[in-house]
Nucleic acid binder design. Structure first.
Length: 268
DNA sequence: AACAGTTTCAACCGCTTTATC
DNA sequence: AGATAAAGCGGTTGAAACTGT
């Protein structure tokens, strides 16, 4: 959304008047002029002390609003545009580990803001959970993401990768600091004949069953997925998370996650 | 073309944590 | 040690953009 690009000057003026409170503090979308003032002021004086900054810069905004505008939009190193495939994997992985710690997750994705990641999670991932008819915080959905979806995304990113390549990928994307479950010896996500997913016993959110789930590669459990894989390899499909989730995928994932649930329960 | 429904994301709100006096 | 202000964080909202009919 960019209010600066739409609406007539008159409409904008009316809205601006409406968005001022009795103290003369403005709220709502920022104008181009306000952005310019804020950028120029920070370029000269640096950031911080936001209430003082707002006052000295002559902005009729509170400090919080200035800080948010700068951090989420005006900072020169803010990365705009779609979340890449690599970033999606990283977000899924980090969220499985840290939960809704958006700021912490954002620190591992250079140029991305906590707000952006939070929005991504709410608009894309939660949407998919709803389509799977499960709660986004349920074990069922977490397992589906962790043991089905993320390995497949990784295979798309690094088609020839070995297990150790996962750690390498995470390193390449700028993420350092902990040993991913996939880099551990008990996780063989890509061998010659099948794909195994072993639920780790020491993950923050996983169960302790350590149950192993195997999908025989030759059995082609979901032709739609493989077809999509082919499209990605040919560069004919949008490389986004949601583009994977067709109705057929949903059915497949639902079956698989139901199976995971049953097996996990039987081991308790 | 017009309308309704849905999605996206910038911005706000309220709470917690940290810094300063 | 307590009070106050500032900064940071996650949840929520609402308007614009998009999509379908």
């Amino acid at each position: 959304m960019d209010v600066n690009k739409s609406g007539s000057a008159v409409q904008t003026q009316v809205k601006e008047q409406h968005n001022e409170n009795e103290m003369g503090i403005r709220k709502g979308p920022w104008t181009v002029d306000e952005d310019t003032i804020l950028v120029n002021y920070i370029t000269t004086h640096g950031e911080g002390h936001w209430n003082t900054l707002a006052r000295c810069a002559g902005l009729r905004r509170n400090g919080k609003s200035c800080r948010l505008r700068w951090l989420n939009y005006l900072r020169p190193d803010v990365r705009r545009g779609n979340i890449t495939l690599q970033e999606q994997i990283l977000i899924l992985e980090l969220h499985s580990r840290w939960g809704n710690r958006w700021s912490k997750i954002a620190q591992q994705l250079p140029g991305r803001t906590d707000n952006e990641i939070k929005n991504y999670w709410r608009t894309r991932v939660i949407k998919q959970a709803k389509q799977l008819k499960c709660d986004v915080n349920s074990k069922q959905f977490r397992d589906t993401l962790r043991y089905v979806w993320m390995p497949r995304l990784l295979e798309r990113v690094q088609p020839t990768s070995q297990p150790s390549g996962v750690a390498g990928f995470l390193h390449q994307t700028g993420f350092q600091g902990y040993e991913t479950e996939w880099a551990k010896p008990n996780h063989s996500y890509s061998d010659s004949s099948s794909v195994h997913f072993q639920a780790p016993s020491n993950s923050d959110h996983s169960d302790s069953s350590g149950s192993v789930h195997t999908i025989e590669k030759g059995s082609d459990p979901c032709p739609a997925l493989n077809n999509h894989n082919h499209m990605l390899e040919q560069g004919t499909a949008d490389q986004s998370l949601e583009s994977f989730w067709t109705e057929e995928h949903m059915w497949f994932l639902q079956q698989l996650s139901d199976d995971l649930e049953i097996k996990s329960n039987s081991l308790l």
